[in-house]
C-alpha cells in the first residue's frame, strides 16, 4: 500500500489523471468532493488531497510515502526527501519583478516582497546584494505598486498579472515544475512499490502529457 499526497487543484487533478491511466484508478475521487482521503479499487494506493505547499510536509513526516510538490516549495522548505522525477508539468518560473520604471539603487538595501523568503534570501546572498524582506502571503504584486517594496520574488506563469499591474520581470531565479518526491524511510521499506510507481508515472508523463 502506497500513500500518495496530491496537491489540491489543477496540478493534482492532472497527476491523478495520469496515475489512474496507469492502473491506480479511484472511482470515488472527484476534485469537487469535500473528502480528503480516497482509496483506489486495487487497494494499492491511498490518495490524500492536500494544500500544495503542505505536500512536502506530509511526505517528510511520513504520513504520505510519496507526493507531488512544486520545485518552488522544495527549494523554499528544503524537505529531507528524495526527488525521484520531474513530471514536466505545472511549469512556471521563480522570477524577480519590479515596476516598469524601476532602477536599482545599490546605495541602500533592496526591499523585496515575497512569499518565498528563503528562496529570495539565498538568491540575493549568492549575488551579494543586501536586502530587506517583506513577507507577504498573497497579492504580492501590490507591494511595489503601493511602494512598500522595490521588487517582488514570485512565481510567474504567463505574466498577465504582472502586466495588468504595470510590473515587468527583471530576472529569473529558477525554472519550476512539479516533482515526484518520496519520504526517505518509505523509500527503504517500500522500494519496489515506490520504484514501480515512479517508473509508471514517468512513462505516463511521456505518453499522455
Amino acid at each position: 500500500m502506497i500513500n500518495i499526497a496530491l496537491p489540491k487543484g489543477r496540478l493534482g487533478e492532472k497527476v491523478y489523471s495520469l496515475l489512474s491511466r496507469v492502473g491506480f484508478n479511484c472511482k470515488e475521487f472527484t476534485p469537487e468532493s469535500r473528502k480528503l482521503i480516497f482509496k483506489d479499487e486495487s487497494g494499492e494506493v491511498n490518495y490524500f488531497w492536500v494544500k500544495p505547499s503542505d505536500v512536502s510536509v506530509y511526505v517528510e513526516l511520513g504520513a504520505a510515502d510519496v507526493g507531488v510538490a512544486g520545485k518552488d516549495i522544495i527549494d523554499e522548505y528544503s524537505p529531507d526527501v528524495y526527488e525521484l522525477a520531474d513530471l514536466d508539468m505545472g511549469k512556471c518560473a521563480m522570477c524577480i519583478a519590479a515596476r516598469a520604471d524601476f532602477k536599482d539603487d545599490v546605495s541602500s538595501p533592496l526591499r523585496v516582497a515575497t512569499k518565498f523568503v528563503r528562496t529570495a534570501e539565498n538568491y540575493y546572498a549568492d549575488i551579494g546584494r543586501d536586502i530587506e524582506i517583506i513577507k507577504l502571503n498573497g497579492s504580492i504584486e501590490l507591494a511595489p505598486v503601493l511602494g512598500i517594496s522595490d521588487v517582488i520574488v514570485d512565481i510567474v506563469e504567463t505574466g498577465t498579472t504582472l502586466k495588468e499591474n504595470n510590473l515587468k520581470v527583471i530576472g529569473k531565479i529558477s525554472d519550476i515544475s512539479a516533482r515526484f518526491i518520496t519520504n526517505k524511510a518509505a523509500f527503504k521499506f517500500k522500494n519496489k512499490e515506490i520504484t514501480a510507481i515512479t517508473e509508471k508515472l514517468k512513462e505516463a508523463v511521456k505518453i499522455y502529457d
Binding site: E60, G62, K184, A185, K188
Partner: peptide, 8 residues
Amino acid sequence: YLKGVPHS
C-alpha cells in the same frame, strides 16, 4: 532506519 519511523 526502523520500519514505521519516517526518518533515520
